[in-house]
Design a protein around this nucleic acid. Sequence first.
DNA 1: TCACCGACGGAAACCGTATCCCGTCGTGCC
DNA 2: GGCACGACGGGATACGGTTTCCGTCGGTGA
Lengths: 384, 384
Amino acid sequence: MSDHDRTGTVTLHDVAREAGVSYATASRALNGSDRSVRAENLARVQEAAARLGYSPHVSAQAIARGSSNTVALIVGAVDDPYFASIADGVAEGAYQAGLTLTAAVTDRSPDMGLQIVRTMRGRRPKVILIAGSRVDDDGVYAALAEELATYRRAGGRVALLSRNDLDFPTLAVDHHGGAFRLAQALAGLGYRRFAVVHGDDRIRMSHDRRQGFLDGLRQAGIVPEPRHVITTDLNRDGGHRAAAFLLGGAAEARPGGGTGGPRDGAGGPPVTAERLPGVGVGVGVGVGVGVGVGVEAIFAVNDVMAIGAMTAVREAGLTPGRDIAVAGFDDIDAARDVTPALTSVRVPLRELGRRALELALSDESPGIVEVPVQVVLRESTPPR
Amino acid sequence: MSDHDRTGTVTLHDVAREAGVSYATASRALNGSDRSVRAENLARVQEAAARLGYSPHVSAQAIARGSSNTVALIVGAVDDPYFASIADGVAEGAYQAGLTLTAAVTDRSPDMGLQIVRTMRGRRPKVILIAGSRVDDDGVYAALAEELATYRRAGGRVALLSRNDLDFPTLAVDHHGGAFRLAQALAGLGYRRFAVVHGDDRIRMSHDRRQGFLDGLRQAGIVPEPRHVITTDLNRDGGHRAAAFLLGGAAEARPGGGTGGPRDGAGGPPVTAERLPGVGVGVGVGVGVGVGVGVEAIFAVNDVMAIGAMTAVREAGLTPGRDIAVAGFDDIDAARDVTPALTSVRVPLRELGRRALELALSDESPGIVEVPVQVVLRESTPPR
DNA sequence: TCACCGACGGAAACCGTATCCCGTCGTGCC
DNA sequence: GGCACGACGGGATACGGTTTCCGTCGGTGA
C-alpha cells in the first residue's frame, strides 16, 4: 500500500502520517499519557494504527521511559515440576500486574547463575526473581551479590527463593524444618534404618533438606550409615539410579520393557557415596555392592527423585511401601498419582512464585519471609 | 566514586570516559564489531567496564541494531509437562544459539493468543514460536494469521507446533495417526468397549487425537457410545473427574486421605457429555449416573489426564490395568512411574522444541514437517 | 623523499518512542 | 469586546546504543 512497508516495519511515525497528526499526538493517543487528546484525533490515530498493524516497539518504549515491564525469572530447569509450578505462580502474578515474563535456565549453562544475572540485568527488567542458581565458590557468590546490588542501585527489584544469606527480600522455604519433622514422623511410625538420597551440596535446597532430615533422625536417636547417604543427580533418573544402587545392582532397564531405567541411555554421573562431615567416608562408588537389605525407608530430597526411586524399587522385585518405604519432598501433583501415594512435605509452590513477585514489587523492608511447609503422610510410608 | 552512580545506572558513555576513549571506540570494544580496536584500548575499555559493573542496555542495542536476540515462546501452560518439555527443548536450543527466551502463557488470559502475539511482536523478537494458543472463532483465527504475517513481513521468523493450516513453518505432530494406531493396537489386544476423554475441540491437539482414536476404532468395527466420549479440562483433574463420572459417581476426595480428588477444591467446569458430529447427543451432565460397568478401557488425549483417570479408577476400588485399562498420549516421564505403567504414544517433546527453533531459524521453505510418534504399550493395557 | 594505503579514533547521524516546552486556539468571565 | 486561562497540537530533545563517514597517523614501495 503506502511506503511504510518498504522496511516492513511500521513505526509511530507512519501512524502519525497516516492519521494526519503529529508524532507527539500519535504517541499520546496510543498509550496512557496524562495529556489528553481530542476525541476526534484519538479515533483517527487508533484507526490508523489498526489499519497499519502497528505495534509499539517495546524496546524503544523501555528506553524512552527508562524502565521496562519485564520480570526476569531465573530458574534451574524448566522441566522440573518444582520450578514449573513456581514459574506458573510467577506467570500468574506477572499477568495480573501487566508484566511480561522472560526466563533463563541455569542448568544449561556451565557459567552458573552469574553470567545469566548479568545478561538479565542488561534487559533492565523491573524485577529479577532467582529461584535456582548454582553457586560454586565464594568468589562467584560475592560476584553475584555485587551484581544484584548494582542492579538494585539502579532501581531494580530483586527477590530470592530459598536462599537466605544475601541481603535481599527472600522467600525462605523451611527446608530444614520440613525434613526434620518428616524424619521425626517416620521414626514415630517405627522406621529405624534409613537411606537418604540427595543432590549436590552446593545446591542449598538439597543441602538443607538432607541436613534437616539427618538432624531429625538424630533427635530420634538414629544415625544412618554413611554409605546409605547418597549424592546423585537431582532429578528422576538420579533417584532411580540411587535406589537401584542401594538395592544391590546397577540401574538397568528391563529389556523390552520400556518401563525401566534412565530414558536417555547410560546417563549422568555415577552415584557416589557421600562424605558426611565429621563422620567418615562412605564406600561403594559404582560397584554393584548392594546394601539394600538393611534399609527400611528411603528419603529423597525431592519428589521426582523419590518417584524415580519407587520405580527402581519395583524393578528390583519389591513393593514400595510394603517392602521398603519411600518419602519425598515438595508434594508435587504426581505424588498423589503414583502407587502407593507418596509421603512428602507440601511446599506451596505456585503460591511461592506469586508471593515472590509480590515481595519484590512491594516496598517493604527486605526481610526474610519464612514459608511454612507441611508433612503429608501417605501410603508409601505405612506404620511399621 | 565518580558521578556515574548519580542515576545508579552505568552507560557506555561512563565507560568511555573512564577508559579515556571515545564513545564509538568503547562500543566497538565491547561487542563483536567488524572494526578492530587497538589492543591497548580494548584492554582499557574492558577493564573500565568491569570496574564500573557495566552491562549493555539490551533494549538500546535492539533499537540501534534493529533486531533483538530474543525468542518468544507462546505456550498454553507452564505447569503442564507437555509444554514444559517443549519449553525445555526450546530453552536448550536458544541457549546454544545465544538467544534469550521470553515466554507467554495463553491459559491465563481470556483474550486468547491474539493479544499475546501482538504484545510479543512489540518486543521485536527474532523468532516467535507458538506451541499453544486458543483460537475461538474464525475471526480471531484470521486476525492471528494477519498478525503473524505482519511480523514476518518485518523480518520476523515464525514456527508453529501442532497446527497445520497456517502458512508458516510447522512442526506437525501426527496426533491423528498416533491415536489411530493406538486404537488399533488396543482393539488388537481384545478391547471392545471404550471411553474417550478429551478437551475443548477448539484445541487442535485434543480434537485430532480424539478423532484419530475414534477413526482407528471405527476401522476395527468399534463405535463407542456417545455418552462415553467426554469433554473436560485438559489437565490432571479433568481426567480425574471424567473417570470418576464414568465409574458412577461424582469425583470425591476420600476424607482424610489426601490422595484423592481435585486439589483446589471443587474446581473447573463440570464434565459434559459430548455431541459427536452426526452421531447424536450424549447424556448425563454432572448427574452421578454411572455408566462405567460396560467400559473396558479409557483413552485420554494426554498422559496427565490419563494419570488423573487412573487415580480415580483406583479410588473407585478398581485396579487400573486389571479391571479397566487406561491409555494416554505424549509419553511423559511420569508415564513410566505410575502403577501400572501407562500405555501411551511417545511424542519427542524436547526434540520438538529444539527443532521448532531450528525450523524457524532456517531459511528453508515454510513447509510442514511431519513428526512421527510411536505407540508404547505398557502394563496399563494388558491383553484382554 | 614522497605518494599511497591500511588501521583506527572520533564526530555525528540514526534507531523508535516519550515528553518537555512553546505556540495556537477556543472559551468564559468581566 | 478584550483578556486571561486552559486545552491541545507540534517541534525538539533525550534515552543508550550502533554504525557511517571522515580524518589522522604510521608504515611501505618506488
